[in-house]
Nucleic acid binder design. Structure first.
Lengths: 118, 118
DNA sequence: TCCAATAGTTACTAAAAGGTTACTATACAA
DNA sequence: TTGTATAGTAACCTTTTAGTAACTATTGGA
């Protein structure tokens, strides 16, 4: 009886299965600049609801890409950070960020790296 | 009255808005290896239905990242390919592919680039 | 004459994702 | 005593996304 979760044959599908989701990618973006509290993530990610933020954080914790640290204080403090595996995703977000910058430049008719300078 | 679609301030969110979707990322993966017919895409992307494939292809065409070419034959032939903008997304898929390979190695206890070799 | 093949569309249904509101605990401060 | 702050959870509802099945066009071939 297998208990391991079966990974797709394709490595792109593997990655997409873990982080190919709008909210997770944005959570990663936030955490790449360092440890954040729950409330900081919430206000840093435009449009995310508390429920969805919690759900995605839990899922990413289960997948072993982020660490959750609870401090026994009142009011409570919970800090989220990337662990090593999470940090290894940095190049993915970086290359998305670069592309996004190029795309915006392109849309604005500025010179860009995407399609050759105008 | 604005008709332009408003882009998010964050470049990562911009990218995620265009291709931060499981199916689009897998369609991109397929097209990075060259022009494909509709049926080839369908069989190359595990689990995608005809409807969802059509929907995503249309959306990507609208966004200007792929080209659709219809040949007046019977039975019909329709070919999809990346245009320049679509091609500029290549590094994103590449880095996802690399990460996926490393992750699978890690899971299998092999040496990997993600977290330091064991 | 009727079937096969391709790339769809349409209508209907099911499942997944997300939104909203109310509620919790706890300690401090007014 | 009441309010505030934080990080949630639970229940309920809506929206979005996806799956399925039936149908379309066209022409060559059996």
């Amino acid at each position: 009886m297998e208990t391991k979760k079966e990974l797709p044959a394709c490595p792109v599908a593997t990655t997409v299965g873990l982080i190919g989701n709008k909210w997770k990618l944005l959570i990663l973006r936030e955490l790449l600049t360092g440890t954040k509290r729950f409330g900081e993530l919430r206000s840093g990610i435009e449009g995310i609801s508390q429920k969805v933020l919690t759900q995605n954080l839990r899922s990413m914790e289960e997948d072993g890409i982020i660490k959750r640290q609870v401090f026994a204080e009142v009011p409570p403090r919970v800090e989220y950070s990337l662990n090593d595996l999470g940090n290894s995703l940095r190049p993915i977000i970086s290359v998305m960020e670069e592309w996004g910058l190029g795309y915006k430049a392109l849309i604005n008719g500025e010179s860009n790296q995407l399609i050759g300078n105008k």
